[in-house]
Design a protein around this nucleic acid. Structure first.
Lengths: 133, 133
DNA sequence: CGTGTGTACTATTACAAGCGGTACACCAAG
DNA sequence: CTTGGTGTACCGCTTGTAATAGTACACACG
């Protein structure tokens, strides 16, 4: 599978699935139109309850990451319009603030923070490039 | 007070207190050695139970943000050694990855992401400067 | 000693997560 | 039409966490 799950993590299992799929899509490991395992199938592979997987799929559909077709399956959505753009930019700014606060408590200057960020982004962009369709 | 609390937020109240204090310290609104309200006092101001505030203070002490002296009060810790530096850098990288994944689902390029980050950091650094001791 | 501090319990309520199981509506293929 | 696979919607149950209320204790200081 494209991501690990830790049942003892404080972050819920269904959320770990959501994060894992979103990361796989962002990295082009999962590409537009590709079919995901059915809820029962993925639940079997991960020894989870199908309801847990279903909850993750519902959240992913709500975030427009996947398309769900009843009786057919779930598919990675084509990168398309994002009507909730404003809301999500607010969310990104929240994450940025978290990062900034953490950095200051680590006595990391804003300049060093930007350098670390730049390095990490370059690394992930490189991984993403290797999966290009 | 230096931060708002939303009882209906999905993030726990005690966590909101932790985040609020950490942010205030990072912004120099709360400075080293400054005394925080007692658990009962802050609980009274926010109409919370003192146990909830105590839980937040314990977490803040665990993260070395405040110093607790029984019978005296709680005080903002002086910026000092961070023995858990490695652990926290891992945490920062996790936050960075979240940010990068979100950006790609918003069809924001890594370059634009870095620009947004730079702007936000400059803004917060400016706020922080105004509170200089 | 008395007061204010953080801390440690107990009990209770509420809610979310996750599991197991069942049932239903939909779609496509036989 | 029937069959099998899909997502979905329930129910009941258990577990863990958050938060409240209340009480009690150990410590520091005047």
């Amino acid at each position: 599978m494209w991501f690990p799950i830790d049942p003892r993590s404080p972050t819920p299992i269904y959320q770990q699935i959501v994060d894992g799929v979103k990361e796989a899509v962002a990295k082009n490991i999962l590409q537009g139109g590709e079919r995901l395992p059915s809820v029962r199938e993925l639940a079997g592979l991960m020894t989870l309850n199908h309801n847990t997987v279903a909850k993750a799929y519902q959240e992913l559909e709500r975030e427009r990451v996947i398309d769900v077709v009843r009786g057919r399956g779930t598919f990675v959505a084509a990168p398309g319009s994002r009507p909730d753009r404003a809301e999500r930019i607010v969310r990104m700014k929240d994450i940025m603030k978290q990062l900034w606060v953490e950095a200051h408590h680590l006595q990391i200057t804003s300049q060093d923070l930007m350098t670390m960020m730049q390095d990490a982004v370059l690394e992930w962009d490189q991984e993403r490039g290797q999966e290009e369709s």
